[in-house]
Write a protein that binds this DNA or RNA. Structure first.
Length: 328
DNA sequence: TGTTGCGGGTGGT
DNA sequence: ACCACCCGCAACA
């Protein structure tokens, strides 16, 4: 469809990638260049309409990695692996950490895990989470294509991500393990006692957020600085569970993303988030009084989605975001 | 429990 | 035909 438009973009991309091999090829070409003179270093955050040729020895390329949350898409072509972007999970309250960073979590790749993830709460404020779907490719998610050919691995990206960068896979894994560690605390646990000891010694109150760092490894958390405040833009949608007492949003627009939100979860009585327009998320709702946040892991100590612990959560951690970190 | 890749199948254009 | 996407399965970590 609209191939014309696509071609136009292609031309841009060609002129844009001036270095190295002429990117006169397309991932769908029957024959791809084998007289490559320069292979590219792995690109962790490929964006826009770009093409890269990696060495077939490149581990990251072999695994079709990307720091964007990409999921496999069936294109019925076993020779070309296609992946589409899942976007980024943000805080429905648009909260910020103490140092002014936003929450940009990595969407779980597996559908089931992602739905479960959306029922969890913001690690920073316990508010509801929201999935900002990617619409960077003519309204559809950005797609990445991988094709192994000879001693090279050809990569082609279509679309420009219209959302902030999520955590990298490593950061997301680190955060998961940190959360898991938190649940390990039980009121009677020796670790908790140790924490109390520390508190008595330092006079400081260690919050659940800080604990992991004291008791275990620190987490990486850098914030994506690109896209800050970007979220307010187009109304994205998907839902979330009901977390900390915040009234889930109501959906103003329609456009409920891609089935992330079951119709049944929409609330008829939508209250327009009086967020002076700029407010980030206008739109969808996610009522779910389903006691969602049943997520034990988060709940255990973080006050989970329940009656929230007084808001100010010292941060320092919860959201190991990053992205801005690794520079290409 | 989650990631990754595969492929059958559906519906829209 | 092509594309987006749903679903289940299997291998793997």
């Amino acid at each position: 469809m609209l191939k014309g438009a696509d071609d136009v973009v292609m031309e841009h991309e060609d002129s844009a990638s001036r270095h190295g091999e002429m990117t006169s090829w397309d991932i769908n070409d029957i024959k791809l260049p084998q007289d490559v003179r320069q292979i590219d270093g792995f690109q962790e955050w490929p964006d826009s309409y770009v093409k890269h040729i990696y060495s077939s020895e490149d581990k990251n390329a072999q695994r079709h990695h990307s720091s964007w949350a990409m999921r496999n898409t069936n294109n019925h072509n076993s020779r070309i692996l296609k992946k589409s972007c899942l976007g980024v999970v943000v805080c429905g309250n648009d909260c910020s950490t103490l140092d002014g960073r936003k929450i940009y979590l990595r969407p779980a790749i597996c559908d089931k895990a992602r739905q479960k993830q959306q029922r969890k709460c913001c690690p920073n404020c316990n508010g509801p989470l929201r999935l900002l779907s990617c619409r960077g490719h003519r309204g559809y998610p950005v797609t990445n294509f991988w094709r192994h050919e000879g001693q090279f691995i050809f990569f082609q990206s279509k679309g420009a991500h219209d959302h902030p960068r999520p955590e990298t896979k490593l950061e997301a894994e680190a955060r998961r393990s940190t959360q898991k560690a938190q649940t390990a605390f039980s009121p009677s646990s020796p670790r908790l006692k140790r924490i109390q000891e520390i508190e008595s010694l330092t006079g400081a109150v260690l919050t659940q957020e800080a604990l992991p760092f004291l008791l275990s490894k620190p987490d990486a958390h850098l914030l994506p600085d690109n896209f800050r405040g970007h979220i307010s833009k187009s109304s994205r949608e998907p839902v979330l569970g009901s977390c900390s007492g915040w009234p889930p949003y109501s959906r103003t627009g329609e456009d409920m993303g891609s089935g992330e939100v079951p119709a049944w979860s929409r609330s008829p009585h939508a209250l327009p988030m009086a967020k002076d327009g700029h407010g980030p998320f206008r739109s969808s709702t996610g009522p779910f009084g389903d006691g969602s946040c049943e997520d034990k892991s988060l709940l255990a100590y973080s006050g989970g989605c329940h009656p929230l612990p007084p808001y100010p959560v010292p941060q320092g951690s919860p959201c190991p975001m990053a992205s801005g970190t690794q520079h290409h």
